[in-house]
């Protein structure tokens, strides 16, 4: 752990890290982009999840929603990750010592695994591909799990802002 913190400190104190932290504009721009891009990444994942649990777009087949939204979900996530990475660069050691940060990263991994499992296992079952009604309950559970995981990720992220700097 102490070596991890040493690495984090060297990231935070690197030229770019310091430049971002001290800039009047870059930090707010990166942080703002990180937050607003959630409306695309988290937003479209949420739309998909609401379809999986049967709340939204019920008359559109699940596979169609997945397929059509995929490029925008991935693009949104790229934006969220890159801007988040730049914010992290400027405060690596500050946030890494918080259990909130660890929880956030672990949950992001869990959310990613859940999405991969859904995409490569559940969404390929014949009942889903052929759009049966009702869909297997595993579809609903995957949607529910995704919604909960990403919500907690955002709560952790928001709470990180309250850490003393």
């Amino acid at each position: 752990m102490s070596s991890l913190i040493a690495i984090a400190e060297s990231i935070e104190q690197s030229q770019i890290g310091v430049a971002i932290a001290e800039s009047r504009y870059w930090w707010p721009i990166f942080e703002g982009t990180h937050l607003l891009s959630l409306s695309i990444s988290f937003g479209l994942i949420l739309v998909t999840d609401l379809r999986l649990v049967g709340v939204l777009l019920r008359r559109v087949p699940v596979t169609e929603v997945l397929h059509q939204l995929r490029p925008y979900v991935l693009g949104g996530f790229a934006l969220t990750f890159i801007s988040g990475g730049l914010v992290f660069w400027s405060e690596a050691a500050t946030v890494m010592v918080s259990p909130l940060w660890t929880a956030k990263i672990l949950l992001i991994l869990l959310g990613g695994l859940n999405a991969l499992y859904f995409e490569f296992v559940i969404a390929r079952r014949p009942e889903v591909v052929e759009n049966h009604t009702p869909l297997p309950s595993s579809v609903r559970y995957a949607g529910l799990a995704s919604m909960m995981i990403w919500t907690v990720v955002i709560v952790c992220g928001r709470l990180l802002a309250y850490l003393p700097r």
Partner: peptide, 18 residues
């Protein structure tokens, strides 16, 4: 309240994006 405010606005923006 701030977290609810952020989530509420994300709900608005995500439906707008779609």
């Amino acid at each position: 309240l701030q977290i609810i405010h952020v989530f509420a606005f994300l709900l608005l923006l995500s439906s707008l994006v779609l």
